[in-house]
């Protein structure tokens, strides 16, 4: 078990012992990844905030049922992925994906770590990331889901197989196809 995992387990033990406030450590640790994943799936800023919050509340409520057979992060991501899947299913008939690459009203400002000294470079990078986000948003559901987990959240093939409840070979196939799809789209947009 890695340090990160054992830290999670310590926090969970505290929460289950009645120290609810300890859960804020979990929120702090996973909020960015959750927010990014949800935003990529939902594409609505306010809705993303509500859903992110809802996912943490749901996790907190279900904490007693976490059987520790897998890592906490895997269990948490399963909740997150399923929540988004259900959300998309419920709202699929109302979703209209814009073909235009123009910036939507609902798009929030990217907050990258301030490591670039050159402001021009930062502007270019922000624009590139905006395009990547947009293209990821237009990927077929299965590919988008798996690319978010693998290439943005950085999860292993095994973790993804567990979260999505699919075979390892299926995970690999989807990752390859999703990447190819995205690479071709970014090439077509002249970004790479």
């Amino acid at each position: 078990m890695s340090n990160s995992d054992s830290e999670d387990i310590q926090v969970i033990d505290k929460v289950l012992a009645g120290d609810i406030e300890a859960f804020s450590v979990i929120i702090d640790k996973y909020r960015d990844k959750t927010f990014n994943y949800v935003y990529s799936q939902v594409k609505d800023y306010d809705e993303t905030l509500d859903i992110t919050q809802e996912i943490f509340i749901m996790t907190m409520e279900a904490l007693a049922s976490f059987r520790r057979e897998s890592k906490f992060s895997t269990w948490f991501y399963s909740i997150m992925v399923n929540y988004c899947k259900n959300y998309r299913k419920k709202n699929s008939r109302y979703n209209v994906i814009s073909i235009n690459s123009s910036r939507g009203d609902d798009e929030y400002d990217l907050q990258l770590p301030d490591e670039r000294e050159n402001p021009e470079e930062e502007v270019i990078m922000n624009e590139s990331l905006r395009i990547v986000k947009e293209e990821i948003g237009m990927l077929p559901d299965d590919y988008r889901e798996i690319l978010l987990l693998r290439d943005i959240q950085g999860l292993s093939y095994n973790e993804i197989a567990e979260i999505l409840d699919i075979s390892l070979s299926n995970v690999k196939v989807r990752i390859h196809r999703g990447r190819e799809f995205l690479k071709n789209r970014l090439t077509a947009r002249g970004l790479i």
Partner: peptide, 19 residues
């Protein structure tokens, strides 16, 4: 493509009072 995806993972949630 993968580098850009990794860059996306560095984006932080803009709502600091979310926790």
């Amino acid at each position: 493509t993968l580098d850009l995806c990794r860059e996306l993972s560095c984006i932080s949630c803009p709502e600091h009072d979310l926790p």
